[in-house]
Design a protein around this nucleic acid. Structure first.
Length: 520
RNA sequence: CGGGACGUAGCGCAGUUUGGCUAGCGCGCUUGGUUCGGGACCAAGAGGUCGCGGGUUCAAAUCCCGCCGUCCCGACCA
């Protein structure tokens, strides 16, 4: 954890790779700032996503969008404003979002004595809610699109912003306005909709693990944590470096609730009039927060290569004009060769900045590989490759770690090694996150163990048998600040956590363990 | 929305208790020179509605009132 006295961070030598939980919130903000990802806007609870942060989100969008297309979905766009009466059609849904809605009530301003105010004359007949999610407005539209089973399924995704007026906000994790994608599908049968719900959860899990290198537990929310208006909410849960859980994505089976409240019916093959079955699913810019809290270290952001807007940064090193000319010439060539391999490469040709300063800067931004090109490399026909991170070895000092990140290779070999190295880094990040999660996961059989785990020890993921009801869940939440993150699918349980047992609270029979943890 | 802390140059802060000279410091920025393989140095320079509004006073960054914002802790949550 770097203690910053000025805006110059502590030297990397003093850094530890896994930040301590107590300072975690501060560390998190520090990484965001140093990586230049985002900042608070003067607008209440809102975030400005800066170019580097947005570039990462764009990479995520593309990876997700490709997967949506591959599973037959198409993109569309629906309005930002939801008439109040639409939102309240589905009772539970409205109740769930009631406390966090921004509402537009007027449509005009007026100048009174040189001061611009809301014109009271311009009051809307019906208030417009700024979408906290789009189920209601989309289903109002689907009504006119669906008459026959031949119109189904509708498999639509929307990339949009939504607003939820949260009391307390944190950059990327919870902001008043956030960017996301929301899929809204309509089906003729229950089975098809349920299948879609599971399919999209798998898409999210695939993205999380194979692109973001964030290992996830797939499971089902308890009744209390279920999406407002859904019959079933599936989710992926991941563990951050401080042991807390983060919900990374949800996929809801909505049954016929929204079809019923918007009166969307169709004629089946058999000529029967039925309500349409629905799903919705979404992930948000919170994923960027997950990325930061899963991989980064005290030197700043660490990006999985698949989400890195820049794969390689090339830094020429020189002492005089002659050296500058020769190293730049070589650097330019190297950049071109790497680009022709389809890599995103940046040449840092800024003048008057010490090479060391550049190293720190690009490391803070999470660029996976740095290539240094100096006179010695030109002489030897070699390149100096430095990886953003390598897997730590037991008892290794920061100095050793740093040395091990650096390799000198003959030029051709170096250039050929970039892609495989990126692949390795991608794999190792997932591996590292998995092993951290394993270290902080515990099969727990008694309340005493549970209490120790979350009060005396650092806590993490607790696998416990649970048969308590809703109130008992709240009780646990009050006592330990933990919640049931999900009821995992059976194949998601660690080997030693499988099978039936007794509830740690009531002693009643429990068919399987659930995942309990503190959460963001 | 409740409890706490804070708001002074792009960033980090001192100054506020006890009102008083032209509002300071470090980093960053600009220019020139020397530097350049892990955060350079010297010199000169630019940069301020002291969060906003009102009040007290000969005089307010400093005292009083109101508002706004940020962070931390609760309740709410992707």
């Amino acid at each position: 954890m770097s203690q910053q006295k000025s805006n110059k961070p502590a030297p990397a030598d003093t850094a530890s790779v896994t930040p301590r939980a107590t300072d975690y919130a501060q560390w998190y903000l520090d990484v965001i700032k140093r990586a230049d990802l985002a900042e608070h806007s003067p607008v209440r609870g809102c975030m400005v996503i800066k170019p580097h942060g947005y570039a990462i989100w764009e990479k995520m969008q593309r990876e997700l969008d490709d997967r949506f297309k591959a599973t037959g979905h198409v993109n569309a766009y629906f309005p930002l404003f939801i008439p109040l009466s639409f939102l309240t059609r589905e009772e539970q849904h409205a109740a769930g979002f009631a406390k966090e809605c921004a509402v537009v009530t007027h449509h005009r301003l007026k100048s009174i004595d040189g001061e611009v105010v809301v014109d009271p004359e311009s009051k809307l007949e019906e208030p417009l809610v700024i979408r906290p999610t789009s189920e209601t407005i989309i289903w109002a539209q689907y009504k006119s699109w669906i008459q026959s089973y031949r119109d189904l399924p509708i498999l639509i995704n929307q990339w949009a912003n939504v607003v939820r007026w949260e009391m307390r906000t944190r950059l990327f994790l919870r902001t008043a306005e956030f960017l996301w994608q929301e899929g809204h599908t309509a089906h003729a049968t229950e089975a098809e909709a349920i299948e879609e719900t599971a399919r999209m959860l798998d898409v999210y899990a695939d993205f999380a693990e194979n692109v973001a290198a964030v290992p996830v537990i797939k499971g089902r929310k308890t009744e209390g944590e279920r999406f407002a208006g859904a019959l079933d909410t599936l989710c992926i849960e991941s563990m951050m470096q401080d042991g807390k859980a983060l919900q990374m994505g949800t996929s809801h089976y909505l049954g016929q609730n929204f079809a019923r409240s918007s009166d969307v019916t169709f004629l089946s093959k058999e000529g029967k009039r039925e309500f349409v079955y629905a799903t919705s699913w979404g992930v948000s810019t919170r994923l960027v927060g997950a990325l930061i809290m899963t991989h980064s270290d005290d030197n700043g952001l660490v990006l999985p290569p698949k989400l890195a807007p820049i794969h390689v940064v090339v830094i020429p090193i020189f002492k005089n004009d002659a050296e500058k000319a020769s190293t730049f010439a070589e650097a330019t060539k190297v950049v071109a060769e790497l680009k022709s391999q389809g890599l995103a490469v940046k040449l840092d040709d800024r003048d008057g900045i010490m090479p060391g300063a550049k190293y720190y800067e690009w490391e803070a931004k999470g660029v996976p590989i740095r290539i240094e090109i100096g006179p010695k490399d030109l002489e030897k026909g070699s390149l100096c490759l430095v990886r953003r991170f390598v897997l730590e070895k037991e008892g290794e000092t920061d100095q050793d770690l740093r040395k091990r990140r650096k390799t000198f290779l003959p030029r051709a070999e170096a250039i050929a090694s970039i892609k495989p190295t990126l692949d390795t880094m991608q794999r190792e990040l997932l591996e590292r996150a998995r092993s951290l999660r394993a270290k902080r996961s515990r099969v727990i059989n008694t309340m005493q163990e549970f209490e120790n785990f979350f009060t005396k020890e650092d806590g993490g993921f607790a696998w416990v048998h649970w048969a308590g009801d809703h109130d008992k869940e709240d009780e646990m939440a009050k006592r330990f600040e933990t919640s049931i993150r999900c009821i995992p699918f059976p194949d998601q349980l660690p080997e030693d956590a499988r099978g039936e047992g007794q509830c740690i609270l009531t002693g009643g029979p429990s068919p399987q363990r659930v995942l309990m943890a503190r959460a963001y």
